[in-house]
């Protein structure tokens, strides 16, 4: 499981960084989204990987914390997802505005060589 998650994060990050450095705004926003996914998985992994351990306490009375997954990183991931989703939407608006005003989808707002 560790290997699969590590590979997943690695591939997402590599693809994200490559796209982030591309000259078209659409590639940049997809790159940022992929990097965001990679980071979210990474935060999740920082709470240690556990199979079959719920993060939310059940029942009453004394509980054994060792039977549960760390809930804090999961709460952090949730917050991070919401924030990055909102900001990606905002970036999309800026991107469309830039495309509308400059007539180019290049990140500099003009085609190279113009």
């Amino acid at each position: 499981m560790e290997l699969v998650l590590a590979l997943g994060i690695g591939v997402l990050t590599a693809a994200g960084v490559w796209l982030l450095l591309r000259p078209r705004t659409f590639q940049v926003i997809i790159g940022l989204s992929l990097l965001g996914y990679a980071v979210n998985l990474f935060i999740f992994a920082m709470g240690r990987l556990r199979a079959g351990a719920p993060p939310v306490l059940k029942g009453e009375g004394p509980v054994n914390p060792a039977a549960y997954a760390d809930p804090v990183p999961q709460a952090l991931v949730l917050t991070a997802i919401v924030i990055s989703f909102a900001l990606t939407a905002l970036f999309l608006v800026v991107l469309l505005t830039s495309r509308g005003i400059t007539g180019s989808d290049h990140i500099d707002g003009r085609e190279p060589g113009e």
Binding site: L20, I83, T97, S98
Partner: peptide, 17 residues
């Protein structure tokens, strides 16, 4: 502003990651 904003948003989103 839109041009400057595009770069500013991209840089800061990356920094947030």
């Amino acid at each position: 502003r839109v041009r400057a904003g595009l770069g500013y948003v991209a840089i800061n989103l990356t920094a947030s990651l």
